[in-house]
């Protein structure tokens, strides 16, 4: 025997559950930013760049590990052998990271302003700084995941390829904090510049072109000026030169990024000025947009 069910309209119900305030709002914005960065819930085309970058980050490491595994007596002292080290990985991936930033940063900021969704966020329990910080952190999360994943593949691959994996890890454990610090420096740089540029326009294409344009123009200008002059200060014009310099400093590499060299502390200050200036511009833009 079956019982008959009935559907009742109990009308509008007041919400009496928990309200988690500002922290929940920040977390929701960050999570939404991560989804946007990965193109989740979006058409296939929106997934190509982020997932392509992730795949590339791992693929570069994979190729390096395969080469290493075929190279005799390499693992015991990779740097001395002149083969691929952890800092070399960042030098290569940094160019792809800038392209990734040029695509993803506008995706995180531009549609919210263009479609007016920002006006809904800013009347909820968050400040413009919360909004920008959540989006910034979402970018850092995905970019760092890709970079660290590449480095993890590299260190695990090198260790497994070594005749004494434990010995290899014991001798190279310092690479872990180094690649974490250097990856963070590189990602902070890419995030601050690309997001500052993206805050200036509501069009994703213009923002992406702006980031790529800034990268190409600055690198070309630095190359030409350094080539035709002996003034070392022109090196600073190259947008990626300072994070690459920091990368070599963190890894204690002897490699000369700036030739002739700049006075001690200048590249570090220049890095701080670029990142700080870009973050300030970003913050200022959203403070004004809120009013």
């Amino acid at each position: 025997m079956t019982q008959q069910g009935e559907v009742y309209d109990i009308g509008y119900q007041r919400y009496l559950g928990p309200r988690e305030g500002r922290w929940r709002a920040r977390k929701a914005l960050w999570a939404n930013g991560v989804r946007l960065s990965l193109g989740l819930g979006r058409p296939l085309l929106a997934k190509v760049f982020p997932w392509g970058f992730m795949a590339l980050a791992v693929a570069i490491s994979g190729v390096a590990v395969i080469i290493a595994s075929f190279t005799a007596n390499f693992i015991s002292d990779a740097d001395a052998a002149g083969l691929w080290g952890y800092n070399d990985y960042y030098e290569v991936i940094s160019y792809f990271l800038m392209i990734f930033a040029a695509v993803v940063a506008p995706e995180l900021l531009c549609p919210d302003r263009r479609d007016g969704v920002l006006s809904l966020y800013l009347v909820r329990p968050i400040t413009p700084t919360d909004y920008v910080a959540a989006r910034f952190l979402a970018f850092l999360t995905i970019a760092l995941c890709a970079l660290y994943l590449g480095q993890i593949v590299l260190i695990v691959g090198y260790a497994l390829s070594a005749s004494e994996p434990v010995e290899y890890l014991r001798n190279n454990w310092l690479a872990v904090p180094r690649f974490m610090a250097s990856g963070l420096a590189l990602t902070l740089f890419a995030a601050s510049i690309s997001m500052a540029v993206a805050s200036l326009t509501t069009r994703r294409a213009y923002a992406a072109a702006g980031v790529v344009g800034l990268f190409i123009v600055s690198t070309t200008a630095a190359g030409v000026l350094v080539g035709t002059s002996t003034n070392a200060w022109f090196n600073l014009l190259g947008i990626l030169s300072t994070p690459i310099y920091l990368n070599s400093v963190i890894f204690g590499s002897e490699q000369a990024v700036f030739s002739p060299p700049l006075p001690t502390g200048v590249p570090e200050l220049w890095y701080a000025a670029i990142v700080g200036g870009a973050c300030f511009l970003l913050w200022l833009r959203y403070r004004r947009l809120a009013a």
């Binding site: 559950g17 309200r19 929701a28 329990p125 968050i126």
Partner: peptide, 8 residues
């Protein structure tokens, strides 16, 4: 938007 308003 409900989450941004603080709801779990």
């Amino acid at each position: 938007m409900a989450q941004v308003s603080g709801l779990p």
